[in-house]
């Protein structure tokens, strides 16, 4: 699970909640992590957000990993402290409008979100206002499955409490109040992500077989898919392994596996 936040104050509740450690490897951006979570602090504005997103994408193993942008936002209608998921993200009158697919099952508010180049003091529409989400979505959606990119904002200012100056303690408090919701979002996104990610046992099996013989680039893809086919048709991992062991080379491993698949490749 990956988080992208603009400010250290927005990051703090997440660092505490998930017990994240600061990475000493990366200097370009502040990155915090544990074995399951990774958080990057982008800085304010679209350029910073786009750069941080790009940087974060470089660290991902899989395009099915989940990415949640958490942050504060102004809103023309919602009350202070209200969390909302962005359902449409736009920037000025640019054509590129993003619609994060509504795949989460949550009883939370949803709202349109406008990304701006500077803070909004007038709140002309009943929508959210931030300075990063459009850039994050724009960059992330080039690499990550769209369902796995979501934007959660918490209302920090609105027409009755207009933005005056940034209050770090208030930011921490607003985000802290929403950590149960953030946890719930993480759980749902991780579970969706797991559904479309190959499981570890399968990857280990593929790796082991690929290390036994030499495979060309094409054969590497073929053997991976054939192992998957054989496994889902009911061939046990041990049988697949012994088949590979008894084959003379990569090519013949593929042939013997396909012969086995042929025998069992009919629907039950």
């Amino acid at each position: 699970m990956n988080f992208i936040v603009a400010l250290q104050a927005e990051a703090r509740p997440l660092i505490d909640k998930f017990k994240l450690q600061k990475s000493t490897v990366f200097k370009t951006f502040r990155i915090f992590h544990n074995t399951k979570h990774r958080l990057i602090v982008s800085g304010i504005g679209q350029i910073q957000a786009a750069a941080a997103t790009g940087f974060l994408l470089g660290l991902l193993k899989d395009k099915t990993e989940a990415l949640l942008n958490v942050g504060l936002a102004g809103h023309g209608k919602l009350a202070m402290g209200t969390p909302f998921l962005a359902n449409r993200i736009e920037y000025k009158d640019e054509d590129s409008v993003y619609f994060p697919p509504p795949v989460l099952k949550l009883a939370t508010d949803y709202s349109l979100l406008q990304t701006l180049d500077s803070p909004e003091f007038e709140y002309p529409k009943p929508v959210g206002y931030d300075m990063e989400a459009h850039a994050i979505y724009s960059v992330a959606s080039k690499s990550i499955t769209r369902e796995m990119i979501q934007v959660l904002k918490i209302v920090s200012d609105n027409p009755s409490h207009p933005l005056e100056q940034f209050d770090a303690e208030k930011a921490v408090e607003l985000i802290s109040d929403q950590t149960p919701l953030i946890e719930e979002i993480c759980e749902q996104m991780e579970s969706l992500s797991n559904e479309i990610t190959n499981d570890r046992d399968f990857l280990a099996l593929v790796e082991e077989i690929q290390s036994m013989h030499r495979f060309t680039q094409t054969e590497t893809h073929q053997i991976e898919r054939d192992i998957q086919r054989a496994a889902c048709l009911g061939l046990e991992a041990n049988d697949i392994l012994s088949l590979a062991r008894s084959s003379a080379n990569g090519k013949s491993t593929i042939s013997s596996l396909r012969r086995e698949i042929k025998k069992i490749g009919i629907l039950a």
């Binding site: 697919p101 795949v103 099952k105 959606s141 080039k142 499955t145 969706l192 559904e195």
Partner: peptide, 12 residues
């Protein structure tokens, strides 16, 4: 848009 996942969307 490309990059959507039919399988996940099918759930909701």
């Amino acid at each position: 848009p490309s990059g959507q996942n039919f399988r996940i969307q099918k759930k909701k």
